[in-house]
Every structure is written in C-alpha cells, then in structure tokens.
Amino acid sequence: MQVEEMQEPDIPVTILTGFLGAGKTTLLNRILTEDHKHRIAIIENEFGPENIDNELIVQSDKEQIVSMNNGCVCCTIRGDLSRVLTDLRHKRDRGEIAFDYVVIETTGVANPGPVAQTFFMDDAVAPYFRLDGVVTVVDAKHGSATLDAEAPARDQVGFADRILLSKCDLVTEEEASALEARLRQMNARAPIRRVDMGKCPVEEVLDISGFNMNDVLDVDPTFFNEGHHHHHDDDIHSFVFDTDRAFDPMKLERYFMSLTSVYGEDLLRYKGVLNLQGSPNRVVVQGVHMLAVSDVLGPWGDRKPTSRLVFIGRNLPEEAIRRGLQTCLV
C-alpha cells in the first residue's frame, strides 16, 4: 500500500455528536464554563433560520461562537464548514481572535461522516486542522429505542471514537449494562464512559487522539468475550480481523480499492496495523467511508509481526470481507 508523509496540522478539532435530547448542549456548556487551558472556538449546526441552541450556550470571552444554520450537516455543510474554518484561521493569524481548539457540534440527526472527511479531503482545511476525534453522546434512558428507530443515531455510534452515556441515573444497572453491550457490538473501538453531562471532565471530550495514526487499536476486550450474539437487529456492527501471516502489499491495496468502491458509503470507520511482506516496519491504515490514509510506524523490534484490522459499518458482509482479506495474505 502506498504511504504518504503528512505534515501535522496545529489546530485540533473534536466533532461532538449525539441524537436529539442526548445532552450535547449541556455538555457544551460544561466545556465552556469549566476552567481549562483551552481557548475553544465552537461551531454549531442546527436546523432552521434561527439557532435556538445559541441562546442556551453560555457566552465566554475566551470562546468564539460560530453559528451555522444551513440545514443538515451531513448534506449541505461541506463548503460552509471549510469556509468557516478558513475564516477562523485567518482571523486568528491576524490576531483578531484567539483559539487553540475547535469543537463542532453537529445537529442531532446528522451523520458525522462527511464532516470527518472534510479534514482529509479539503485542501483549505487539512493542512491546518487536525481531527482529534468524534465523541458521541447516547441517552441511557431513551438510547435503545432511539437506536431501534433512527438510522442516524446508529451511524453516530459507528463513527464514534468515544461514547458518553448520559442519564444513567434514570435507568437500572441492568438496563445501562445491556445498552453498553449493544454499543460495544456496534462499535468495538470506542471506549464507553458513563457521565453526568453537567459534570463531565473536559479530558473525556478533548485530546482523546481518536484519529491519531498510531498502533493502538482501542478494541474493548469484552467485545471478544461477548461474541456476536445480537439482542437487536442493528445494521451497524463491528468485527476484527487478526492474522499472524503477512499481507501482500499489492494484493491488499487492490482489495481495499475494490472494497471501498463497493461498500464505501457503508464503511463508517476502519483502522488497522499491518504486517506487510518485505517491510520491517509496522504500517497503520485508517479510513472513513471511501477515504483511507496510511503511515509507517517504527520497526517491529521485539514484537511478533501481526496484523489486526477493525471494521465498523452498515450491513457489511463480514464473512465475505474476511475471505477477501485471506486472499491477500502471503
């Protein structure tokens, strides 16, 4: 697989998502009022000509609130987000505003995928802004019913680098545990935290390094223990491919091109550490939909060369993908 050297952008960005009523605004107020070292620029998106949530957000001298009312973030925001981020950066360069972090709060019915892709595909954004992670808020009280009924809510879970479970005080321990088990089957990568949105530590949201190109695959160990016994017929699920055999680089690259061309829209997130034939180094690859990036890590050293790939997607043909990956092994 081809590997490109990338200059590290200097402005980290968190995408904050979650279905309507999950507690994003409460969490955002927490971030804006807590005494932390960040100067945060907030970018919001909501439906309609008037931004109702803007009145709920605490105004602070340290933060710049940028409201966008252009409709659903997943279908119309691409150009506007690029423009707003570029405008913020230019104002910062001119000394008109000061910020060192950006939080994008998406509308409650948004799929965060296109927003995430902006930080890889947009030439006006990618060199300056670094996507730190996608944080998804799930309501413990209504979360299971929402996941049953709303496809965007399932997408939000699939894209998450971290899941924050809110309103746990309104449910029993058994109900909360059952929801956690369901979320783990949908997304094995994302750690789950039970939090009170009004008291959530900022470090649970910012600087989580969810999109870092490193070899840490945050697969919940209980994912393997629970197996694949689904209590719900979710279209979003995750699976892990492990092998001690090396991949043929050319075969794997051709397979990934084919895989993303056919299933790209349904491949929400995927990440892996690869053992490539002929290479003494670990290679990490991760992608969002049809866009994948890769980088070379250090040598294997004393570690046994192995490969692990995690896929999270919508109605993916797991066994067919496993067979396809098998054909790429040496």
Rank of each mutant, 00 (worst) to 15 (best):
T17R: 01
E318F: 05
P221Q: 03
G264F: 05
K304T: 15
K167G: 09
L164V: 00
Q277D: 13
T136V: 02
A22G: 02
F120Y: 15
A178P: 07
I31A: 07
R269E: 01
H237Y: 14
V219Y: 02
E175W: 08
V195W: 00
S166T: 10
E318T: 14
D242H: 15
V293K: 14
T14C: 08
L291E: 13
D35K: 15
D53Y: 05
R314E: 05
G113H: 02
M1W: 00
E204G: 06
I57P: 06
D244V: 12
D80T: 04
T86C: 06
D248P: 07
D233C: 08
R94H: 10
D53K: 03
I312K: 03
F120W: 11
V137E: 03
C74V: 05
L56T: 09
R92M: 06
R83I: 11
A151F: 12
D248C: 11
L217V: 08
V66N: 08
D242V: 06
E55R: 14
P201C: 07
D233G: 08
V137M: 06
L309T: 05
V330A: 13
G18N: 02
S209I: 06
D196A: 13
V134G: 03
V13I: 05
D302C: 09
R83V: 10
T260L: 14
G298V: 02
R78N: 11
P127W: 02
P112A: 09
R39D: 11
A140W: 01
D234L: 06
D148T: 12
A320F: 12
L147K: 01
S261W: 05
N51E: 14
G287C: 07
T86V: 11
R254L: 13
D61S: 13
I208Q: 07
D196N: 14
T260V: 13
M121N: 15
R194Y: 07
K199F: 09
D10L: 13
H230R: 06
Y255F: 15
D234S: 15
P9Q: 03
E204S: 10
Y128S: 11
P201Y: 03
L268I: 10
R303D: 15
H229L: 12
V84L: 10
E8I: 12
V240N: 03
I321C: 04
Y128V: 12
V66C: 10
Q2K: 14
G158H: 02
G313H: 02
L183I: 02
L179C: 01
A190K: 00
V3P: 08
T136K: 01
E46H: 07
E253K: 06
P49E: 15
N54W: 08
M68G: 05
E46M: 07
A126L: 08
K141H: 13
D100K: 01
P127K: 00
V330T: 14
T76L: 12
A292H: 09
A151N: 09
E8N: 11
E96Q: 06
N212E: 14
G227V: 02
V73Q: 11
H36W: 03
L164E: 01
N111T: 10
I104T: 01
S60P: 09
L20R: 01
F239V: 04
N214A: 04
V103W: 03
R89F: 09
A246Q: 14
